[in-house]
Design a protein around this nucleic acid. Sequence first.
DNA 1: TATGAATGAGCGTTCATTCAT
DNA 2: TATGAATGAACGCTCATTCAT
Lengths: 193, 193, 193, 193
Amino acid sequence: MARAAQKRTLETRARLVAAANAVIDEVGYQGLRVEHVVLRAGVAKGTFFAHFRDKDALMELLIGSRINTFLDQIETLPAPQSVDDMTDALMPMMQFMTCERYVFDVIMRYSGAAACEDIGTIATTFGRQIDVMISWLADGPFRKDISAELLAEGVQAFSVQAMALIFCALHNETDLRARMTLYLNAWLTPASW
Amino acid sequence: MARAAQKRTLETRARLVAAANAVIDEVGYQGLRVEHVVLRAGVAKGTFFAHFRDKDALMELLIGSRINTFLDQIETLPAPQSVDDMTDALMPMMQFMTCERYVFDVIMRYSGAAACEDIGTIATTFGRQIDVMISWLADGPFRKDISAELLAEGVQAFSVQAMALIFCALHNETDLRARMTLYLNAWLTPASW
Amino acid sequence: MARAAQKRTLETRARLVAAANAVIDEVGYQGLRVEHVVLRAGVAKGTFFAHFRDKDALMELLIGSRINTFLDQIETLPAPQSVDDMTDALMPMMQFMTCERYVFDVIMRYSGAAACEDIGTIATTFGRQIDVMISWLADGPFRKDISAELLAEGVQAFSVQAMALIFCALHNETDLRARMTLYLNAWLTPASW
Amino acid sequence: MARAAQKRTLETRARLVAAANAVIDEVGYQGLRVEHVVLRAGVAKGTFFAHFRDKDALMELLIGSRINTFLDQIETLPAPQSVDDMTDALMPMMQFMTCERYVFDVIMRYSGAAACEDIGTIATTFGRQIDVMISWLADGPFRKDISAELLAEGVQAFSVQAMALIFCALHNETDLRARMTLYLNAWLTPASW
DNA sequence: TATGAATGAGCGTTCATTCAT
DNA sequence: TATGAATGAACGCTCATTCAT
């Protein structure tokens, strides 16, 4: 019976997540309303809050999941041997992260949280990003005078900077890649000064 | 006549700004309510919206002004000759920027906007930051293999990264300075790799 | 459970309606403020708008209810056998309809709507008025060369005309009855021309 | 000088009226905003209120003028010799009166005001309507057992009734004419009962 | 007359969240 | 768990009208 109950619980939760994704497909993350989610899931509003602490918790889960999917993909790639390769590897994830101002803002609220005990889906992805990059950086023709971790944090800092520019009317996706290349070349390439 | 009218307008606007600052002193930026502002300013609510598009517009003005004041101060300083000096110079402004999560979030919405025609008070402060740092970087014992502008953008990227960490439970003000030093040393110091 | 929930809903709605009526007793229909209603009902403002589309929807309900009460009363009366009797029967309702310029205006917005599918409380009362009068007209010493329905519509048209005169500074309640008698005699009395 | 000043005054007033008509052509009577009128007229808001007691005063003037134009036209017609002719004569004016719900409402606020000392442009038009119709009724093959004035008031009452039906989704312009014919036949035609 | 900034009361709305059942 | 009515604090907005200059 407990097992059955748990099964129902999981089903309800899955229904809510599916409904939320469907809503997002229609109106975007920004436009998501709890009301619409529960309506589509066919459950009561209270049920939503029995499954998610608050709306933000759902958002974090949804966005975090998407990022994790991108990271799964990224982890299958061989360690990039150039800044261009690294940019290529990161681009899909960065494009998702900038698909909506709202999404970027949510993610930003957790940036830097990588080093925190803080356990949230998005925060964890920052840790994963750092980890992936550490493995890459140790393994490629990149700057070696500072720790791979610090280097990775720098890549993250520059990613954020590059992404932030997307939301300027004057910049577009092409710029995102160009910026990244520019930044990472300056940050990662062992040049003699 | 037009001048007289404009004078009254400016006075009212000044009253609103002063009232807003007073409210913020009491309840913080986050806690500011339009209602309280107009009450304290002794003007009608409609007057508020005749002067500011919405609450956010006021916020941008207030926060932007504060940042500009810090930049005024910063511009009086001699060009820093070390990463420590540079960090010292930037710290007061960064501390303000991280005084409240809300303030940081507002600022972030305009980060990267430096390069934009986009005219908002905060956006312009990003441009000023870049300009100040360009003058510093050209003038100090810093990396010279890339343009001062790119270097400045990097400083900004790392500042954001360092500030974002403040909002992790695990970090505090001391860390802000430490992080900045760490990042800027790695970014600005001409080391042989 | 659904029944219980509905019960609470009905109670809240009843509280709002009662509060609204109390407010009207004090300040009139014109003076009714949503704020005062919710305050007196002891519910949140949001609750009001969960029950009524807007203030006008409440007004229609309240005024429509009052008219229906008058019609209930009217329906208990025997079919009038003279224009005077008919006027007597209609007077209380017409006096309510002209108790406030605001009330009359609200009602007018729905006049003629009798024949409409349009479902609003006030609109339906127009239909009831017609029905009552049809039964009267078929049953009394009134003109018979045209359909009772057309005759009833004419009574309505003349009622409106007579009521509209009330809002002329020069006219008063006495005139309302006098006008009605004059009009109805001309409209309903089988005279040889 | 006084004459010059008066000339300027009249010009400004004319500019305001012209601007108002232009605004109405674009957004309808309902959509007219004093702000738009003064903007288009190139005068200050205060000037508007120096020329018109309030917005309603302007509206009354504009709508009243239009009605008077229709009445001018109507007065050139020969006295109608049938209900159909009478309906034809009145239709253009009635169509204008029902061009917008707002216009009809404004007019209604003055209906019945014909008999009032009350001096407003629209109120006066009601008087003119009555006068025109009195001359018609005395002069045609219409009911004669009651005064032409009372008969005219009845025509007005039925006109209002017919026009009110226009604002029911279920009715249209064709109905307006059909209704009028129906009503006026019942009211004006000397039939033996 | 003309100006136009200021008024100001109130409406409608929002929507995540709570809580009694 | 599930329900869903109720919450409630603000915000934005409206826009005719006033009044000091």
